[in-house]
Design a protein around this nucleic acid. Structure first.
Lengths: 344, 344
DNA sequence: TAAATAAATTCAAACGATTTAAACAAGCCC
DNA sequence: GGGCTTGTTTAAATCGTTTGAATTTATTTA
């Protein structure tokens, strides 16, 4: 037994009330200039009085535009609890809201992929466009969008050798900034903790090593540990692994702040002082990075802006003002207390 | 110039293809038992072959159900970045997804309230029901729902003296557990940091004091500071204020973990040791509470479950299996290292 | 075999808007 | 007064489904 709702005021009722046709009401409500002022006023007043709300379903049906955007995130554990995604979604929301669009949330879990829901959301007109945040290297299904050329935007990641639209922080540049910061402080033995399940993660790793080697560090003084969850626990475990095999390390570079925080926790548990004994650097500049003890040196990626601008670009594509988007944003170093000169 | 999309396969095309009427196709696709097996198979095969996807807009229009739920959060700064909301939303998503519902995101910002968007979302059939997470005491507009009796659920908060549906952690019980834990450790001078812009926050404060006083603590040994953002910065500032006026405090109780983390940061900056010099306790058990140094003693609220169950109840209401919901969940103490015996 | 019943399918009217082309009225010119 | 504009309004088609009533076809019964 489905609960029945009080039926809403329709355009037809306004029409009856004003003694005009439904078409006239529609025209007025859509601001057509060809309706006489007196009629217009009459209709507008009636609409306000009856508290008319256009039925969005009917509207979408005839216009085949739902004024909704789908935001999809990978199926990580409690994914919305991750500030990383939160910042991006906040940015997307702001831009969408200003343009009169609603946000439809989705998680790319098994059934989502198996049943091709990622295609269907656009096909069945639930959403006009799609923003896919931070896929993993396994999300190859996204490549299907290449042939279907639906309005899709990859947010803060990309697929190498594909033509899919993306807007992302420049992770190669990020790696370069991190490497340079640590080397300037005299570090020659740096342990890297990085997620290896994203293309941006792999880019970060490869570029980080390349820049270090350019500056004369040897591969053997650059141990690293890969992981997949990108969370505090990952960082904690990775730090333990690195330190047990390489006690000579004077710095740990984590490819995001949550892992850096986990690593820092491990080091302090072991009685090491940060940064006197060992430096720790993160990436993302999440809000809590400012409130760790010591404060975390990190990279500001402005994920909010990444979200906002991705959404803006997608809307431009939907409006035909643009056909593609391949854009990178610059990160910046945020200096705090967790990095210092290498111990001698 | 709006981009035009390749028009999708409709029920009519399947009909032509199978040489039956559109009605027959619809009936088959909705699993009606009154279609002959041979016809049924023919239609199903054709639908699969043509990769048919029902147009959800058309569907919603005729059924006046959108199979969407609106999730609304208060207009805090970058609200989706807050794990508190993230956990709840994750829980809501899971339940909704299993029931075949989509999630529509909203933020209760100025325009949302001024333009009565909160009513319109349900009126214009964008969503079938609404979940409103953690309102503030100022969100009195929600009371309008009382007379309109739309399917609304307040998630992890409530409005006193209203009949609105809610499902929330029991914050009075939470306050009791916290007070008892600290007093068992011998604390007699406890500073409280709490947001005063929510009813649950006010409940927490009042109950906390009541329990302490029941156990013989005097009001003067229980200073407190109110705030509104519930974040690390709030906790940091509040701790400073408390400690400068009341250096005799041996414990600080923060009404959520983010504020506790901020407070802890302040105390450590001042050279105080937690918990030897002063204990700190939080509420929520957010993931990073486990990775602070020292680990944060807190209350597990299971916000994911709060979200999941709120959504479940709302769906029950929508399905007519239930008419109201007023439910409280029990919190539990999570012992870590940030609380210890009061210094003497 | 005709009539009555059952099963399968189709018709046609919604649902609530938008939009194009047609209708209508008024004013002007010749 | 017929023909032409110009300015307003409206009828009717459309969007893609669902659904109760009507119709067709098949099966059973008398």
């Amino acid at each position: 037994m489905i609960q029945k709702r009080a039926k809403a005021v329709t355009i037809k009722e306004i029409a009856t009330h004003c003694d005009v046709s439904p078409s006239t009401v529609s025209l007025v409500l859509n601001g057509s200039p060809k309706i006489k002022k007196s009629t217009r006023d009459k209709v507008i007043e009636a609409a306000a009085m009856l508290d008319y709300q256009p039925n969005e379903m009917a509207r979408s049906l005839v216009s085949s535009r739902s004024r909704c955007l789908s935001v999809t995130v990978p199926a990580l554990n409690h994914v919305f609890s991750d500030v990383y995604f939160g910042e991006i979604i906040s940015g997307i929301y702001q831009e969408a809201q200003e343009a009169g669009y609603k946000i439809l949330l989705d998680i790319a879990q098994e059934s989502f992929i198996a049943e091709k829901e990622y295609l269907n959301i656009l096909r069945n007109r639930r959403a006009d466009g799609m923003l896919y945040i931070a896929s993993t290297v396994e999300d190859r299904f996204l490549l299907e969008f290449e042939e279907h050329h639906d309005p899709l935007m990859l947010v803060n990641h990309y697929f190498p050798d594909s033509s899919l639209n993306y807007l992302s922080v420049d992770y190669k540049q990020a790696a370069r900034l991190c490497a340079e910061h640590l080397m300037e402080l005299g570090h020659r033995h740096i342990g890297l903790i990085v997620g290896t399940n994203t293309f941006t993660g792999l880019d970060f790793r490869d570029t980080f090593f390349a820049v270090c080697e350019e500056n004369g560090l040897s591969k053997t003084s650059l141990p690293w540990t890969g992981c997949t969850d990108w969370d505090e626990q990952d960082g904690y475990t990775a730090a333990r692994k690195l330190m047990s095999r390489h006690p000579e390390l004077t710095a740990i570079m984590a490819a995001n702040d949550r892992m850096a925080i986990g690593a820092m926790r491990y080091l302090m548990n072991k009685g090491l002082h940060v940064p006197e004994d060992i430096s720790v650097m993160g990436v993302d500049n999440i809000p809590s990075a400012k409130f760790t003890t010591p404060g975390l040196t990190t990279l500001k990626m402005d994920l909010f802006e990444v979200g906002r601008r991705s959404c803006k670009r997608l809307l431009e594509i939907l409006n035909g003002q643009r056909t593609a988007c391949h854009e990178l944003l610059e990160p910046h170093v945020i200096l705090r207390e967790s990095t210092g000169p290498a111990r001698v």
